[in-house]
Simulated assay, not measured.
Amino acid sequence: MSPRQVLGKIGLWCAVFIVVSPAILFFLWMASLSIKFEIDNAAYPPVFLPEHFAWKNYADVLASNRFVTYFINSLLVTGTATLLAMLVGVPAGYGIARMSAHKSAVVILIARITPGLSYLVPLFLLFQWLGLLGTLWPQIIIHLVVTVPIVIWIMIGYFETTPLELEEAAFIDGATRWQVFWHVALPIARPGLAVAFILAVIFSWNNFVFGIVLAGRETRTLPVAVYNMISFDQLSWGPLAAAALIVTLPVLLLTVFAQRQIVAGLTAGAVKGG
């Protein structure tokens, strides 16, 4: 290995460390806050690891009367929005890729990068007129604004890289377009499906703005529940950090266990569609 290559690798690792270290530091500090008593959280100079761990912070959060309800709400909203996005987005991505509908792909990209707040006000008025405010349906529907463009855009890029020869052979054997899509295209696109599913789950689970506007007292999701723990009278950093860590943990574990699929899917789809 030449000196230039060694310097290049060192520079790359330094750049990665600079980019990643703030996120790691913030996560470790949040974990530290979650296992400390309030007197340790308010200590100066700051204490990173206390002598006695305050596991009571986690117990208090999990024992909360509404935590289980909010957790179930998050599962229902995220699960339903992701499932509907996959049912709609995967066939749409396949159709756009095979028809080379580049203008449609640009429209999907614009919908993806448009801030969700742009849709929030008109949809809020619509849900209010329909009498759906305070239920889970407005959150599920508006989460589709986020998840569907993600799925379509990823699948467009992935289907554009899959070989057409196999599909053409299936057509010659008498298969219909639906049979080709179901039996030929989908099995090849499994890495792309995994990436689309995981990213849709992450963006839906972490969404905060839609939930705080459209949710009622019994239909809040976990990010909104954590926000509601902030009080002007008293702010308990330990339980707040514990709740934030619990909300982050499912997505974090999903990302860690599926990192290979994410990298493989994004790399494959980036050749033409990225």
Results as ranks from 00 to 15, higher is better:
Leu84Tyr: 13
Ile18Phe: 12
Tyr119Thr: 06
Trp205Asn: 02
Ile152His: 12
Cys14Ile: 06
Phe27His: 01
Arg66Glu: 15
Ser104Phe: 13
Ala23Lys: 00
Leu75Ser: 09
Ala31Ile: 09
Phe124Tyr: 12
Gly131Thr: 08
Leu222Glu: 10
Ser118Tyr: 14
Glu168Thr: 03
Val107His: 06
Phe208Cys: 01
Ala270Phe: 10
Ile39Leu: 08
Leu235Trp: 12
Gly11Arg: 00
Trp55Gly: 02
Cys14Ala: 04
Ser74Gly: 08
Met1Asn: 06
Ala189Asn: 05
Trp182Thr: 08
Gln261Gly: 00
Val121Asp: 07
Arg112Glu: 11
Ala242Ile: 04
Arg220Gln: 15
Pro187Trp: 14
Arg98Gln: 09
Ile142His: 06
Arg98Leu: 09
Leu130Asp: 05
Val19Asp: 03
Gln234Asn: 12
Val180Thr: 12
Pro187Cys: 09
Met99Arg: 05
Gly79Ala: 13
Pro50Ala: 00
Ala63Arg: 10
Leu123Ala: 07
Ser231Lys: 14
Thr162Ile: 11
Phe127Pro: 09
Val20Gln: 07
Val195Glu: 07
Val20Asn: 02
Ser236Asp: 14
Asn228His: 14
Ile152Arg: 10
Leu25Asn: 05
Pro22Leu: 09
Pro149Ile: 12
Glu160Lys: 06
Ala175Leu: 15
Ala189Pro: 02
Val6Thr: 06
Pro163Val: 07
Ala54Ile: 03
Tyr94Met: 03
Ala59Trp: 15
Ile72Met: 13
Leu7Glu: 04
Val247Thr: 08
Leu240Lys: 01
Ala268Asp: 07
Val107Ser: 04
Ala170Phe: 00
Pro22Thr: 06
Asn65Ala: 14
Gly192Pro: 13
Val107Asn: 02
Ala170Cys: 04
Ser64Met: 13
Leu49Arg: 00
Gly134Leu: 12
Gly174Pro: 06
Phe71Asn: 05
Thr162Asp: 06
Pro91Met: 09
Gln261Ser: 00
Ala170Arg: 00
Lys9Ala: 11
Trp29Lys: 01
Gln179Leu: 13
Arg190Gln: 14
Thr221Phe: 15
Val121Ile: 15
Arg4Ser: 13
Arg66Gln: 14
Val195Gly: 02
Leu235Ala: 07
Leu7Thr: 00
